[in-house]
Design a protein around this nucleic acid. Structure first.
Length: 111
DNA sequence: AGAATGACAATGC
DNA sequence: GGCATTGCCATTC
């Protein structure tokens, strides 16, 4: 596995419970700005049951990035709600649960 | 090599 | 907020 991939996994694992982050944010946190798609590709190949909070990763708009109604979709909603995250119509209000620059700094100690 | 595809994103209307 | 465009990266045909 490439270094980059590992860093992405770390970044995802670094999302605190009850919070969500966008693909772009993860990529950036992993030191791979502009590689949001890479993140998405990795998550797609992560087997279910793997110890990774993949469900905390959403699109920049806050919506779940899979076909509504699909198995993974429901699973993601369930897991998120289990952590206290509001999921309304397959979407999460990033204004409250999303990691923004401020939280990011406080949490991960970025400059 | 060239084109299409995908759990994406930023910008402009 | 929706829709189209453009940029991106890795993989697969």
């Amino acid at each position: 596995m490439k270094e980059e991939y590992q860093r992405v996994f770390d970044a995802i694992a670094g999302i605190p419970p009850g919070r969500v982050a966008s693909y772009g944010a993860i990529a950036a946190r992993a030191g791979l700005p502009g590689r949001a798609r890479l993140v998405g590709r990795l998550l797609g190949e992560v087997p279910d049951g793997m110890q990774l909070p993949w469900f905390r990763v959403l699109r920049s708009s806050g919506e779940i990035a899979m076909p509504a109604g699909s198995r993974g979709f429901r699973e993601q909603c369930r897991l998120l709600r289990a952590e206290g995250v509001e999921v309304e119509n397959g979407r999460v209000p990033l204004s409250r649960f999303g990691l923004d620059a401020d939280v990011d700094r406080e949490l991960w100690g970025l400059p």
